[in-house]
Nucleic acid binder design. Sequence first.
DNA 1: TTGTAAGCGTTATCAT
DNA 2: ATGATAACGCTTACAA
Lengths: 329, 329
Amino acid sequence: MTSIKDVAIEAGVSTATVSRVLANKGSFKADTRDKILSAIAKLNYRPNLIARSLRVQTSTKIGLLVSDIRNPFFTAIARAVEDAAYARGYSVIMCNTDENPEKEALYLDLMRDENVAGVIFSPTQQFNATHVQHPTHIPFVIIDRTVNEGEFDWVQLDNYAAAYELTEHLLAQGYRKLAGLFGDTSSTGFERKKGFLAALAAHQLEPIATQLMPPRLAHGFDATQALLAQNPRPDAIFTSNSLLTAGAFQALRTHKIAIPQEIGLVGFDETTWSELVEPAITLIAQPTEEIGHSAVELLFQRIQEPERAHRKVILQGTLRIHASSMRNF
Amino acid sequence: MTSIKDVAIEAGVSTATVSRVLANKGSFKADTRDKILSAIAKLNYRPNLIARSLRVQTSTKIGLLVSDIRNPFFTAIARAVEDAAYARGYSVIMCNTDENPEKEALYLDLMRDENVAGVIFSPTQQFNATHVQHPTHIPFVIIDRTVNEGEFDWVQLDNYAAAYELTEHLLAQGYRKLAGLFGDTSSTGFERKKGFLAALAAHQLEPIATQLMPPRLAHGFDATQALLAQNPRPDAIFTSNSLLTAGAFQALRTHKIAIPQEIGLVGFDETTWSELVEPAITLIAQPTEEIGHSAVELLFQRIQEPERAHRKVILQGTLRIHASSMRNF
DNA sequence: TTGTAAGCGTTATCAT
DNA sequence: ATGATAACGCTTACAA
């Protein structure tokens, strides 16, 4: 490992001067700068970021903590965050908590230990408890989810409104016996459930069933099978997450239920295949690009001005109507 | 930030002793250990990994560098790697190069700078050049792809055999006018192309068309549209990547081509939706779990024994036959 | 304009 | 069994 010392010796100056040239701060002669630069080139020197980070107590990395890397929503976010950060000369290191509070705590500590400049984060339900025990002073932006305590910057979908609109659409199509499947690992599912119920209530209706479950395909599948056995059977299924949508879809297919005639199906998040299945799925598309960019934006603002008031950015989803809910067509 | 010094003062010992207790190496009285432990608890002390890393020149992190986080194959790998590493007490930091050699170089440097214990890595085509310029001594395991130069540990699918088998299947179904769409950003596409051609050659056949393209949905779509306009038109399309499969599928759907009767379609990688579309897609499933675990395994072996001979782990894919290629059914 | 030296939080060597 | 202390590679007062 060639260090700043080697460069200093090679260039015949002190390490302090090398450091100044590297950071382009303080003053130095053009001449010495050139000497140093060529020494650097010659030795193929790269500053040790660990050492720098130890010294200055920060870095040009941001952390991205997602709760489920298999969820296409989060990979879309990851791309957007990555792009926005890269444009500002920051690297992003990404970790997957897998909805596991232990891993979340581990990776949160890791981020702290890494001296990341800030963290973009979709917390598990248990984050509150963890956070109360180990408050951290790293700039934070929370995405996708709500946590109850503490003050943070946020970027979120208007989940209530989106779910309301999606439900309204089902009702407009004449569906009346709605069942809802919601993820239970985050506030997102709960808020979507609220919007779902509110839209029904506005029509003096009640759901046939609502269920909370881990946002995994298998759970969506099982829950849908159970719904099919139920009496009265739902005529439409509302899912709060693309993995649940897939599970429900699979169950309906398995039981040869005609979508949308016998049962309508709607969900959240565009995926590669959501328009390619037959019928294509009606869903709320999230502005993932904008969510990622806003999160990075907010994070940098907070880094620059740590004491500013906390902001909440609420973005609207877009209803994309496809055949899976078009009973009247 | 509470440091080891604070703990030492609180416990009335030296930092050296605290460090020994922390690492559980060297010797100390049970009594002093207890004093130190309670001081740690009281102060809520956590060792600074940056400082430790600076000192010992390594860490308990491994880096995972993937080339496209939107490709479900890589997220599946990420999960597997994560699990295996976590089981050994290692954290994984994941970066997305997005098939961009610049980002790749950046993140490779980052990994080095982070003192990661090792890197699991799916390199871009350009990696060779980069690597020759900046050889690195970090333990490496290459996944999914081949690079020409240098010596590494590898975990890979037997792409040639998988493609051969997949093509044989098409031929067995009576398809004769095959077209192949292959990703052009990695060796994987090339090897699959070879297997494809070899299987055809074994039947004295030639492909109707083969095309190389970026592994993105839009490219698969466009290429398939072009194939449909072509004369003679293919009666089956072979795709080397799930994003290309999706693009081809979409194009066939758009043009109302009956799969598998008019045109058969096959591809690689199971995804959430690949069995849910109509018809379900015949494909080669990769053992992602095993790939991830093997990669971690290989990496730890190399970390422990840096000079050992390089190994290559070749895993077999599994042909999953579904309706998209079942013309005879 | 440049150099000296302290310090970031650890670990490891060498005394004691 | 424990403590001083140097060292990891860098930045930054402060001095020259």
